[in-house]
Amino acid sequence: MPSLLKRLIPLLLSICLASPAVNAADDWQELPANPLILTVTGELGCCPQGQALFDLQRLDALPQVEVKTLTPWTEQEDSYRGVRLSVLLDELKAQGQRIDATALNDYSMLLNLPAARQYPVILATRKNGKVMGVRDKGPIWVIYPLSDFPELRKEEHHQAMVWQLKSLNIGR
C-alpha cells in the first residue's frame, strides 16, 4: 500500500502541476536565461523548429517525480528527483519511436522507448535534494527505478542510465 501511494503521489502531483508547464511551451525554442543543460531535437509537436532548450528552471517547471534506487555505480540507495521522461516527451508532443541520449563526454545510447515509457524513468536533476554537478553525474542523470523493479536490472537498462546527459534526439 505505501509503495502504491508512493507511485500515486507523483502522478497526482504531475496532474496538478501540468497547467503552468503549458504556458512555458512558447519559450522552449528560445535560449533559456540560465545555462543550457538539455537540448531535445527531433519531430516535436510543440516546437516547429525541431528543437527544445532547457535550463534547470524550465525542467523544474515540469512535474517532478522522485525515485529511490541503488545503482551499480553507487554504494547506497539514494533519492533522485526530476521530470519523468514520458511526461517530458508528452509535453513536447514528441513524435518518434527512438530516443538517442548523448552525454557531455559524447557517450551516446539508444533508449528502449517502451520500457522508458512503461516505468517511471526520470531525468534526475537532484540527488538527495541537491542539484547535481558534473562531478556527481549531473546536471542530468537518466535514472531507472532499479530497486522498485527488479526486472529492470539488466545490462540493457544499465547502459541506458546515461549520466551527464546533454541532449536527447527523438527520431522515427
Binding site: 555505480w73 557531455l104 558534473v134 556527481d136 553525474k137
Partner: peptide, 20 residues
Amino acid sequence: QFDYDLLWSRLETFLSGQEN
C-alpha cells in the same frame, strides 16, 4: 574545469559501486 569535473566523476564511479 569541465574536464577536471569529468575525470572526477569518472574516478569516483570507478572507486564506488558494484559494477567495478
